[in-house]
């Protein structure tokens, strides 16, 4: 399948704003040069809620999507507004499985501290984390370059330090994936 035939689905889940999905789709088109499509919003993923932690299991959302969503999209990025976790970590900004079909990212931790007001940088952060997780779906691994999109961000500060593009090695790895 050629590069032009790839198709990325941006799937809002729950109460996430339209703007968030559009920003992510625009960045995917711009950075990955792949066609994107914002899909109709899915209902709140109550199945992934963990009562003990009062958080949503990112792995459960991915499992659900991979098992039940039968879209024709090449890859799917789920956008949500939930506090995501994986069992070992207190929280995650997003989650994807290496070479998988579906990733999930959340805008929840990008709001201004102690406030639900929009932070000016939150859409940019959401775009960066979406591109990062999408990179994993295309089999790209973490990069040691602190400015590269594939650099692992464990905090808002690290994420803010990342540029909106791949380093030359990751660009090459991405292009090789399609060649």
């Amino acid at each position: 399948m050629g590069k032009k035939e790839k198709f990325i689905g941006v799937l809002p889940v729950g109460t996430v704003s339209d703007l968030a999905s559009k920003v992510v789709a625009a960045h995917i088109t711009s950075i990955f040069t792949l066609p994107t499509k914002v899909l109709p919003c899915l209902k709140h993923p109550s199945y992934a809620f963990d009562k003990k932690r009062s958080q949503y299991d990112a792995g459960a959302i991915i499992n659900f999507m991979e098992n039940s969503y039968m879209g024709n999209d090449e890859k799917i990025i789920c956008i949500c507004d939930l506090d995501l976790f994986v069992p070992i970590f207190t929280h995650v900004f997003g989650q994807a499985r290496q070479g998988g079909k579906c990733a999930v990212v959340s805008i929840y931790r990008f709001y201004a501290a102690q406030s639900s007001d929009p932070d000016p940088g939150m859409y940019e952060r959401l775009a960066k984390i979406s591109l990062h997780e999408l990179g994993h779906l295309f089999d790209m691994i973490h990069c040691s370059d602190e400015r590269c999109l594939m650099h692992y961000s464990d905090s808002i500060e690290t994420l803010d330090n990342i540029m909106m593009n791949f380093c030359r090695y990751c660009s090459k790895a991405f292009n090789t994936h399609f060649s």
């Binding site: 792995g59 994986v86 070992i88 970590f89 499985r97 290496q98």
Partner: peptide
């Protein structure tokens, strides 16, 4: 012994190569 823990670690390290 918990599969979810093994999987979480697995994916994290796999992503780091």
């Amino acid at each position: 012994d918990e599969m979810v823990v093994r999987e979480s670690f697995y994916h994290w390290f796999k992503q780091s190569g």
